[in-house]
Amino acid sequence: MADAMAVNTGRATRVARSHLRRRSPLARKALPYLLVAPAVIYLLGITLYPGLYAIYQSLFRVKFNSWTFIGLENYQKLFADREFWGSLWNTFLMGSSALAIEFVVALGLAALAYRDPWIRHWRIVFLLPMLFMPSAVSFIWKLAFNDGRVVSDILMRIGLIERPLDFLGNVFLARLSLVVTDVWQWTPFLFIIFVAALQSQDAELEEAAQLDGARWPQIFWNVSLPMLKPIIAVALVLRGIDIVTMFTSVFIITGGTPGGATETMSYFIYRTGFKRFDFGYASAASVCMLVLTVIIAQTFVKRFFRSARE
């Protein structure tokens, strides 16, 4: 043991010395920064620059090419704007419902399937919806809910309803159609992650619990689930981030109707900027969303990613 250590330290000093000979300490110190710098600069260009630009633009009234400085007027208007608060509420409401359903379904399915002999087949089948482009998925459900009335037709055949449902005109149904679209496409994302995490856990722990006479639901709840916690956190954060940016389905399926009840923050910014060409105002909304994002990133992501890694 002591011998081995001596050999190791001997090699370490030899390694260090060979480096000193070949390169100046400054170059040696700079190398890791030089390797990481291109990526960081690229990302700064695409996040920091637009962020600063948005803050700057939000202080102006922008009409085509004429910019008039108006200070914080855009923000004053924004905080009094019911459509803005509405979009925030809709994002939260639809996003948290979709995330909650996806989480429960994915965890349940993963728990049922991960020790199944046909797990490889289940995985492929459950994965399929995720492999379509979100715009295509939006059209599938737009046709099923609205244009083709297939969902209504099926419910009528079963005898649950009398007349076709108006998925665009009813606030609850319009929101529901977007939630279903998201759940259909993205439950697989969580399912795949949960199954992988469950499979990679130590099977011996489960077997030991089984020998002790514990039943399957107890084992899952008391042995497997606690081990899964860090992974669940990471998966939910990643999915949560994508849900908050919900745009494609709103754009294709509802366009924010009825009366803005399905308008998300992303769609609000898009509509203000690129439909009403009120760029200063849209930038102010972007800045608010940015602030929210940074707060969420700082509180959740840093902690969860670190705990998942160690």
């Binding site: 908050v244 745009f247 898009y270 972007s286 969420i296 990133a297």
Partner: peptide, 14 residues
């Protein structure tokens, strides 16, 4: 890592 969380809509206009 955190740039993954940048919503497209935030940076879309700039």
């Amino acid at each position: 890592l955190s740039t993954r969380m940048m919503a497209p809509a935030i940076v879309a206009i700039p």
